[in-house]
Design a protein around this nucleic acid. Structure first.
Lengths: 204, 204
DNA sequence: TAGAGAACTATCCCTTGGTATAGGTTATTC
DNA sequence: GAATAACCTATACCAAGGGATAGTTCTCTA
């Protein structure tokens, strides 16, 4: 079985290769970027499975995934990520990814998942996909009301108050009020800092 | 030699443990958060070296690092990270970390670094620490002038135009002009989006 | 030496953001 | 039934952000 691993962190590449080699019967190649991976596929196809790190130069969200799926000889492509949200995992599976592997799973499960995907199945860990949006899990989110969370979401999309108001069917003054309360709660001096704080907290 | 590895990704924990065990002479324990790591240190000290993932629940920037250094029996603590900047690495070493290990290094180098640090030395990979702010390495940064990069830096700190002007000893209108050009170059509609784009590109 | 590009300053003008204040409804809790 | 909290609307005011335009200096390069 031939597997191609693309991750910009050599430490992670080395780790994945070692786990797969040790499991036996798997021949692993590596690449450090999407470009490199695509070049390898063109040159050295076919691979049974390609694993792409979500946070890697050239990925551009899911663009790198679809690009990798569309070249060469019909290889199956899975996403692997430490930070990606359930939303991203679902979108990846939606566009036809072979699977989604969070880095929070044990190495043994990863190896099993690779074998599973290589047989043509679609893989995603149940506990990850069914995890609720867990307001309690995040110290920041716990303090905020429903509306304030929606404000924060709008902020992390770079929207203006007016746009946020429109998308929620409320008036702009209302948005401003929620914003003010939000800033106070999370200790932000302005919307840009609020957006950065939200991102650093792993929200959205 | 006893090493404690703290990372919220089980896949990474498994990998580090395996590499260290295989190298021989190293006894590795693991934790999934800063709290867990501290509890283990209190209970099961002494460790020769503690390795903390920078992006982990409870780290709070470098707060988790200093906390881990200050408890228990004088263990040495190193930072490990895939995304951290040189600036962060320098600050970590500045407050007395045993070393900084980027995930972009090979597994073999990681093992050598661990042995090195356990002997009391301070470790940081030369190529990482001497890398210039690398305008060429980042597709985004390559397009920007020196001033525009400074604008972007100010943005990612949530500063106002006035604050940025003061810190660079230029006038506010000048900052606005650079901002306008910056937005055009990176395709941002406003400062918040610009800040988010910069962060996503791994800048600052 | 002419031209291009980066950087700086400036002014005008409009939009957006942020605070203060005030008054209202609804649901939950004590 | 009163208190609390979340949510909604509104008005007014000032600060900050952002576009347009115009001109200066400097440096590097064709």
């Amino acid at each position: 079985m031939r597997v191609l691993i693309a991750d910009d962190h050599e430490l992670m590449r080395d780790a994945l290769v070692m786990f797969l080699q040790n499991a036996g019967g798997i021949d692993a190649s590596t690449a450090g970027s999407v470009d490199e991976a695509c070049a390898l596929i063109e040159k050295d196809a076919p691979f049974d499975l390609v694993m792409l790190d979500f946070n890697m130069p050239g990925m551009n969200g899911l663009a790198g995934l679809t690009r990798t799926m569309n070249i060469g000889g019909g290889q199956r492509v899975a996403l692997i990520s430490g930070e990606a949200t359930r939303d991203i995992a679902e979108r990846a599976l939606g566009v036809g990814a072979a699977g989604f592997i969070p880095k929070s799973i044990p190495a043994k499960s990863m190896v099993n998942a690779v074998r599973f995907m290589a047989t043509g199945e679609q893989y995603a860990p149940v506990e990850f996909m069914t995890a609720s949006d867990a307001p309690s899990s995040n110290p920041l989110a716990a303090k905020l009301s429903r509306r304030e969370m929606q404000m924060l979401k709008g902020l992390t999309e770079g929207k203006t108050n007016k746009e946020i108001a429109r998308s929620l069917n409320i008036q702009e003054p209302t948005v401003k009020l929620h914003m003010k309360n939000l800033y106070r709660k999370i200790g932000a001096a302005n919307r840009t800092r609020a957006a950065l704080i939200a991102r650093e907290a792993g929200l959205f």
